[in-house]
Design a protein around this nucleic acid. Structure first.
Length: 492
RNA sequence: GGCGUCGUGGCCGAGUGGCUAGGCUGGGCUCUGCAAAAGCUCCUACAGCGGUUCGAAUCCGCUCGAUGCCUCCA
């Protein structure tokens, strides 16, 4: 029987601001849409955190036995530099600066994006559609909204009429805003605008003559507004109403608010049942920003080539660091923080590697099922990975006690224990075992030989020789561990 | 200015109206030839001030502080 039938998954819904029992529209199936990156520069660590958070959610839903269709777009056009009629999207701007074709920019940073997410061990989404591949769909939606009288055309551009929409619907339902407030509090924007009201947002923008990325439409040669692509693609692949929509906290307003408005007008139904928002990653207590230099790229962490960290940290250690915080909490990336996480991660992996050393007994002194239930309870409570990890460290202690024969498990319980640990560590948390790669048979044969020689030296009280073996192996990154049942080793 | 979020022990980070988070670090003990590893154990907590309550770090109010959005942003 599928696990979802016995697990009560609760999800925090940004729309209701409360945890709700998760019930998908179609039993056993989940449709999930997550706003992807704008591919105009390298992904930074904050992006990675968001996508990793939704990777955890994707993985757990799959683990529970759901058939998940996970759609995450690539924004490769139509993303306005700002909303004040500058008339140039950021992809095109970057292309001009670098003297290359816009699609070359898109290609370069899409590849970078995929590389980083692969290193961090994110699963690829089920569908990864691009904005430029869905221009036709977007134009159709604009036509529909125009026909319904909730958009207007001015000088070849089309804008969504937020005030009119607000007469019958609540624009601000997700972000907790009232349109009346924002009318009085909108800051002055530079440049002139065709918009009737500052709150209105672009559905279609007429391209200036020098603008390279352009498509024909009934209104002008131009490009779609940013908010529209997500509506077009989520509707196309997941339906008019789907289960989960995710994205970074900063997209709540205006992006997701605009999506809701567009969908409500087009389809007359609420587009999403559960809105999920991942919180921000900050660096040394401050917002990450290129302009201030408070900034680090994922690859700079993996290579150690940066001014913030004393050494390199593996993608797995980085992932583990981020999983130790809940996805809805702000996470502060610091050198001390990731160093502590790396040690914990290595400790966890060492325990996983030691599972094979446990021998079964006739009786169990540990209640594995109740421990296992605590792991599920953690994730069922709005994907609480920090609590899951705390429970996994409980398991680490069990592993060490079992190896020392201070606790016992029956063969069945032991099997259950191993399967559960592996499932949570590798399938759900998506960690990779950095400690396994070097443990080839040949290497372990050599180390075992040295361990035997050291034991002989110790038996002869030749401490100089035994310490020499131990210390020089340590220099090579091989640590010897003397236990009651003899000496074992681990490779770093 | 408006709308939010948050303020937990040396650090990072969970959580709950009364009962252990967990990791890292530091101290002690056991084990050990010595160490390491492992196990056991200890320490300074819930920004401040009021209020609700038998009882609040957990609910409410105010103050202070941090941070996000309001303009592209994961």
């Amino acid at each position: 029987m599928e696990l979802y039938k016995t697990n009560q998954l609760k999800i925090y819904n940004s729309l209701s601001k409360s945890k709700e029992l998760f019930v998908p529209i179609v039993e056993g199936n989940v449709g999930m849409y997550v706003c992807g990156p704008t591919v105009y520069s390298n992904v930074h660590l904050g992006n990675v955190r968001t996508f990793m958070s939704f990777d955890l959610i994707f993985r757990y839903l799959k683990h529970l036995g759901y058939k998940v269709r996970y759609v995450r777009n690539i924004t490769d056009a139509g993303h306005l530099e700002n909303d004040a009629d500058v008339g140039e999207d950021r992809i095109a701007k970057k292309a001009r600066l670098e003297q290359i074709e816009p699609m070359e920019v898109v290609q370069r940073y899409t590849v970078d994006f995929h590389n980083i997410l692969q290193k961090i061990n994110n699963l690829p989404p089920s569908i990864e559609p691009t904005a430029t591949g869905h221009i036709v769909e977007q134009i159709e939606i604009i036509k529909d909204i125009l026909n319904k009288g909730l958009a207007y055309e001015i000088n070849g551009s089309v804008y969504f009429d937020v005030l009119k929409y607000n007469e019958t619907e609540h624009y601000g339902i997700l972000s907790g805003r009232n349109i009346e407030d924002s009318i009085h509090n909108t800051r002055e924007l530079d440049g002139q605008s065709d918009k009737k009201n500052p709150q209105d947002f672009a559905l279609w923008k007429k391209a200036e003559p020098q603008h390279i990325m352009r498509w024909p439409s009934p209104w002008s040669d131009g490009f779609p507004g940013w908010h529209l692509e997500c509506t077009a693609m989520s509707t196309k692949y997941l339906g008019e109403t789907f289960d989960i929509h995710g994205g970074g906290m900063d997209l709540k307003f205006p992006h997701h608010e605009c999506e809701i408005a567009q969908s409500q007008v087009k389809n007359k139904v609420k587009p999403v049942n559960y809105w999920l928002h991942a919180n921000m990653l900050i660096l040394n207590g401050m917002k990450m920003a290129k302009s201030t230099g408070n900034y680090i790229l994922p690859d700079e962490i993996f290579t150690g080539d940066n001014k913030i960290l004393p050494k390199a940290f593996s993608p797995s250690a980085t992932r583990f660091f981020m999983l130790q915080a809940h996805y809805r909490s702000i996470l502060d990336f610091t050198s001390a923080g990731i160093e502590a996480s790396e040690k914990g991660y290595l400790k966890l992996m060492e325990a996983v590697n030691s599972l094979s050393k446990i021998e079964a007994s006739k009786a169990s002194s540990i209640d594995i099922n109740s421990w296992k239930q605590k792991c599920y309870d953690a994730l069922n409570d709005d994907f609480n990975s920090p609590i899951l990890i705390a429970n996994l460290f409980e398991a680490v202690k069990y592993v060490n006690l079992l190896i020392d024969k201070k606790e016992t498990l029956t063969a069945d319980d032991l099997q259950n224990f191993k399967i559960t640990i592996n499932a949570f560590v590798f399938d759900v948390l998506g960690l990779k075992n950095d400690m396994q790669e070097d443990s080839s048979d040949k290497l372990s044969g050599v180390v075992e030989l040295l361990i035997t020689m050291r034991k002989e030296a110790r038996d002869n009280k030749d401490w100089a020789l035994s310490d020499k073996i131990r210390d020089e192996l340590a220099v090579l990154g091989i640590q010897l561990k003397d236990g009651k049942e003899g000496t074992t080793f681990s490779v770093n």
